[in-house]
C-alpha cells in the first residue's frame, strides 16, 4: 500500500474521532427518547470551554472536563424542558443551538487564534509496528483511541446488556417499560446528560486536537452533520461510526482529487459536498426512494438490503412521556 494512502487513512481516522464521539453520545440520548437538537451549539460552546480551560490551567484533562460539563448542561436543559416542563424538544434544542452559537462568539472574542495546548500523539509500542494497520490505528493520540473504544463499549452496552435493554425500551415503549418497573424519566435524564457530556468531549476534541485553537464559528455545521449521521447509522453506534468514517473519507479523497485541478469550481464542490452527501444519504435511508429501488430487486435480496439501507427511529423519540 502506498505510504501516501496510509497517511490519508490515519488522518481520516483522526479527523473522524470528534464526530464519532458526538454520534455515540447523541445515539445514547436518542435511544432513550431525547433528541438533543442543541448539538451544533453545544459543540461550539464546549469547544470554546475546553480551549479556555486548558489555556488557563495548562491541563488538557481540565479542558476536556470543562467541555464535558458544558455539553452535559446543555443536554440537561433540553431534558428538563421536555421531561419536566413538557415543552417541545425540537424548539428548546433549536433555541439552544442558536444561543450556543452566539454565546461562543461573544465569550470567545478574546481567545481567537491564540496558541494553546494540544493532545500529543501516543504510539502504542509493538502494535504500531504492524504493517499498514500499525500506522493507521496505533500511531494516534488518546482521543482517537477513546473514540474507538467508545464505539465498542456503547454498542455492547446498548445491544448486549440488561441496562441497554431498559434503555432501548424507554425509547421504544416507555409506558410498557414503566409498567415493568423501569424509571423511564430518570433514565432519560441520565442518558441525555451522558450523551451531552460526550458531545462536550467531542467539542474539546476539536479545539484541543483535530482543529487546534479557537475562532468564531470554529465547528459550525458539524453538529448538524453529526445529527444526520445518527439517523444514517440507524441509531447504532457502530453503523454511525462507519457513517462518520465514510463521510470524512469521501471528503478527503475528493479534496485530494480536486487539488490536482485547482479552480473556482472545485472549491464550490468541496464546500457543497457535506450538505449534498447529507441530503443524498438521508434520502437513501429515508424510505420512499429506496423502497422504489428495493422493490425491483429479487424478493430474496429485498430483506437483507432493506436491513442495510433503511433505518427506523426509536418509536417514542421526542414524544411526550406519560408516567405515573
Amino acid at each position: 500500500m502506498d505510504a501516501n494512502w496510509i497517511a490519508i487513512a490515519a488522518s481520516v481516522l483522526l479527523q473522524s474521532s470528534p464526530l464519532i464521539i458526538a454520534v455515540c453520545g447523541e445515539t445514547l440520548s436518542e435511544r432513550a427518547g431525547v433528541v438533543n437538537l442543541s448539538l451544533d451549539g453545544s459543540l461550539l460552546l464546549s469547544a470554546l470551554a475546553g480551549f479556555v480551560a486548558a489555556y488557563f490551567s495548562s491541563s488538557l484533562l481540565l479542558g476536556f472536563l470543562a467541555a464535558a460539563g458544558v455539553g452535559a448542561l446543555m443536554a440537561l436543559i433540553v431534558a428538563f424542558g421536555s421531561l419536566a416542563l413538557r415543552q417541545s424538544q425540537v424548539a428548546v434544542g433549536f433555541v439552544l443551538t442558536l444561543l450556543g452559537d452566539s454565546l461562543s462568539a461573544f465569550l470567545g472574542q478574546n481567545f481567537t487564534r491564540l496558541p494553546g495546548p494540544w493532545v500529543q500523539r501516543l504510539p502504542i509500542p509493538l502494535l504500531k509496528d504492524i504493517p499498514v494497520l500499525g500506522p493507521i490505528f496505533f500511531n494516534q493520540d488518546l482521543v482517537v483511541y477513546f473514540s474507538l473504544v467508545l464505539v465498542a463499549v456503547t454498542t455492547w452496552w446498548i445491544f448486549h446488556t440488561r441496562p441497554g435493554l431498559e434503555l432501548r425500551s424507554a425509547g421504544e415503549r416507555p409506558e410498557a417499560a414503566f409498567a415493568r418497573g423501569v424509571a423511564v424519566r430518570r433514565l432519560r435524564y441520565w442518558y441525555a446528560v451522558l450523551g451531552g457530556a460526550l458531545v462536550g468531549i467531542a467539542g474539546a476534541a476539536y479545539s484541543l486536537d483535530v482543529k487546534i485553537g479557537w475562532a468564531e464559528g470554529h465547528t459550525r455545521g458539524l453538529g448538524w452533520i453529526a445529527l444526520a449521521i445518527v439517523i444514517f447509522g440507524g441509531w447504532s453506534p457502530l453503523r454511525g461510526a462507519l457513517g462518520v468514517l465514510l463521510f470524512v473519507a469521501t471528503r478527503s479523497v475528493i479534496s485530494v482529487v480536486l487539488q490536482r485541478s485547482l479552480g473556482e469550481s472545485s472549491v464550490v464542490i468541496l464546500n457543497a459536498l457535506p450538505w449534498l452527501l447529507m441530503l443524498g444519504v438521508l434520502v437513501v435511508v429515508g424510505g420512499r426512494f429506496s423502497e422504489q429501488v428495493l422493490s425491483r430487486l429479487p424478493a430474496a435480496l429485498q430483506r437483507p438490503f432493506r436491513g442495510l439501507l433503511r433505518a427506523a427511529p426509536p418509536a417514542a423519540l421526542g414524544a411526550e412521556l406519560k408516567e405515573g
Binding site: 437538537l37 447529507m278 441530503l279 438521508l282 435511508v285 429515508g286 424510505g287
Partner: peptide, 8 residues
Amino acid sequence: WGVHEIFG
C-alpha cells in the same frame, strides 16, 4: 422522500 424538513 423521508428527509425531515429540519435536515433538508
